[in-house]
């Protein structure tokens, strides 16, 4: 196994271990119930739906919408502070190593396909969509589109997030007869979104992370200042572009080692023939 593959599988093992740790309420998967303990006070760093039967923590994006949309609060300082703290320490390292939905997309992309799509016309522009989704669906709509009691819905979770369908929806519906009878157009819509995400993940590397994920949008802002960062030794670098060619997020580490789109997967570090990239 070459250096690149060794690093990649090491990363996948850590992703899987973390996903297992944060979804360790295994009895929930068997009984179709969710964990109801105090640990759910705490947010996990990755996109992990709290309605996943195994989840022992809370999704920070879900938590943010829950607080913003509650009748007695107008902003979620707890979730925002948590995201700022994690982002400032690790940036998008979380996306590359600690997000269960990132792992799912990583594995889906390993499925062979006639032509894998690296970049395309409009790719750069489309990547800004995640910031729009963050501001509109996670912050503004739950804040202003409220009912008579002043409560807003978690619009991102409800209309966009396929992680909830995959991690929670499918299993809970499978195990609960009463939930099956309540299925409607929303479940159909979310299933379509999930199928589209799964299909695109085979063709494009991490399409949800690149274009949609509001969590990735938050962490990307902190990537340039995060404590955990990449450094390129300009004296060692030969300018061969091996790092840029291997990057599935289409980042050139020599131009910007801490680019907002870098998920710190480490592929560039493994590919560098002179070990000029360090963290």
């Amino acid at each position: 196994m070459d250096n690149k593959n060794k690093n990649e599988w090491k990363r996948h093992r850590i992703q899987a271990l973390w996903a297992l740790l944060t979804n360790s309420y295994l009895v929930g998967f068997v009984q179709g119930k969710i964990y109801r303990g105090k640990l759910k006070n705490l947010c996990v760093p990755g996109l992990n739906c709290y309605s996943c039967p195994g989840a022992v923590g809370s999704c920070p994006i879900g938590a943010m919408q829950a607080v913003i949309g509650s009748w007695n609060f107008r902003f979620a300082f707890y979730a925002a502070g948590f995201l700022m703290f994690v982002g400032a320490l690790a940036g998008r390292f979380v996306c590359g190593w600690l997000c269960p939905f990132g792992l799912v997309q990583d594995l889906l992309h390993k499925i062979p396909f006639v032509k894998k799509i690296g970049t395309f016309k409009g790719d750069r522009l489309l990547r800004r969509l995640k910031y729009v989704i963050l501001f509109v669906f996670v912050i503004l709509l739950p804040m202003f589109l409220v009912d008579v009691l002043g409560q807003g819905l978690p619009y991102f979770c409800k209309y966009i997030c396929p992680a909830g369908t995959l991690e929670g929806g499918i299993l809970l519906v499978l195990f609960n007869k009463s939930m099956r009878s309540a299925l409607g157009w929303l479940y159909a819509w979310k299933s379509v979104l999930l199928i589209v995400t799964v299909t695109l993940s085979v063709m494009i590397y991490r399409p949800f992370c690149k274009y949609i994920c509001p969590l990735g949008a938050v962490y990307s802002v902190f990537n340039p200042i995060s404590v955990f960062r990449y450094r390129v030794d300009k004296e060692k670098c030969t300018g061969c572009s091996a790092c840029a060619k291997v990057c599935k997020m289409q980042v050139d580490p020599v131009k910007n080692a801490n680019h907002p789109e870098c998920v710190r997967c480490g592929a560039c570090k493994s590919a560098c023939p002179v070990k000029a990239i360090t963290s």
Binding site: Y50, F73, P154, C157, M179, G184
Partner: peptide, 19 residues
């Protein structure tokens, strides 16, 4: 705010799962 998060997280979020 933690109370709100806990309240939401310990009940199945119908919006999240698509019900």
């Amino acid at each position: 705010e933690m109370t709100v998060v806990l309240e939401k997280a310990v009940n199945i979020c119908m919006e999240c799962v698509g019900i």
